[in-house]
Design a protein around this nucleic acid. Structure first.
Length: 273
DNA sequence: CCTGAAACCTGTCTGC
DNA sequence: TGCAGACAGGTTTCAG
């Protein structure tokens, strides 16, 4: 489900609290419950029995599409993949979620619930989060990624631009929605070879990526179907899911195509090869 | 190194 | 109403 803006929204809510979601920092872990074995990527469950009790939540952070709970001596990482959802509740609450895969239980009886219908989501606990995050590319919103650096990275690869933007090792956090939106905003056809993008266009693309991600964060992410709720960015889509509808820039009908086996939405007028 | 296909899963929607 | 098939915000692995 979620891309960078949606994970950022979860992160902010769990760090600071919001209506219907309480803040995690300061809570002490009592234990956990694992309802679907594969959801726990690492370590083995018996290792968690040893590691988790007594750990305090020190901070809640995001890196790419990973949400990180920094504990006293370990880091717990969540990847929500296609349908993961993180919600808070109190022990004993009758929770309406039908697909709970993992729960983190705190000493005060509160709990963090990982609900995930499609079972693609994963949880890691590790003393060194670098083990899980080492292959990620740069954060798109981090100022240390300069237009010159971004251009140079594009030049170093010879791939279809949309597939490259979806590659988390190239840049971390973009998914199918924000990639389509950014390419449209930058006026770049998704099948353009990364190698052929000029410095000026690369600068536009980086700027477009930052615009759509910032706007997504400002609107608490995008809610499209039953999976994720609470976001408003779906009301600002320029092309995603709008096949047959007019381009907001020129009025041409938006087309849907496949690029790297992913549904892709373009304005054929604004995004020429 | 690059691409496409398949696998991992369940839920929803469309068309017959 | 029932049912098959397509499709879904992601990532990994494998064949060519």
């Amino acid at each position: 489900m979620p891309e960078l803006p949606e994970v950022e929204t979860f992160t902010r809510n769990l760090r600071e609290g919001t209506a219907g979601c309480f803040a995690l920092p300061g809570r002490i872990v009592r234990g956990y419950r694992l309802h679907w074995r594969k959801t726990l990527a690492s370590p083995e469950p018996q290792q968690l029995d040893e590691w988790l009790p007594g750990q305090k939540v020190v901070a809640v952070k995001r890196r790419g599409k990973f949400l990180m709970l920094e504990l006293t001596a370990y880091t717990m990482l969540f990847h929500l993949r296609m349908s993961g959802d993180l919600v808070t509740a109190v022990l004993g609450d009758d929770v309406a979620f039908k697909h709970i895969r993992f729960e983190l239980i705190f000493k005060d009886g509160s709990r963090l619930i990982f609900n995930d219908p499609r079972k693609f989501g994963r949880v890691w606990v590790t003393p060194d989060p670098g083990e899980v995050l080492s292959r990620l590319g740069p954060e798109p919103l981090d100022a240390s990624l300069t237009p010159a650096e971004f251009y140079s990275r594009l030049q170093g690869r010879k791939r279809v631009i949309k597939s490259l933007l979806l590659d988390q090792g190239f840049i971390a956090g973009l998914g199918n929605i924000y990639t389509d939106e950014a390419l449209h905003l930058a006026g770049i056809h998704p099948q353009t070879s990364s190698h052929s993008i000029k410095a000026r266009a690369a600068g536009c693309l980086l700027e477009a990526i930052r615009m759509v991600l910032s706007e997504g964060i400002a609107r608490n992410g995008a809610s499209i179907d039953w999976v994720y709720r609470g976001g408003e960015y779906q009301n600002n889509f320029r092309v995603y899911g709008r096949q047959g509808m007019p381009c907001p820039v020129c009025g041409t009908h938006i087309q849907r195509m496949l690029v790297g086996q992913r549904g892709t939405h373009i304005c054929p007028q604004c995004q020429k090869k």
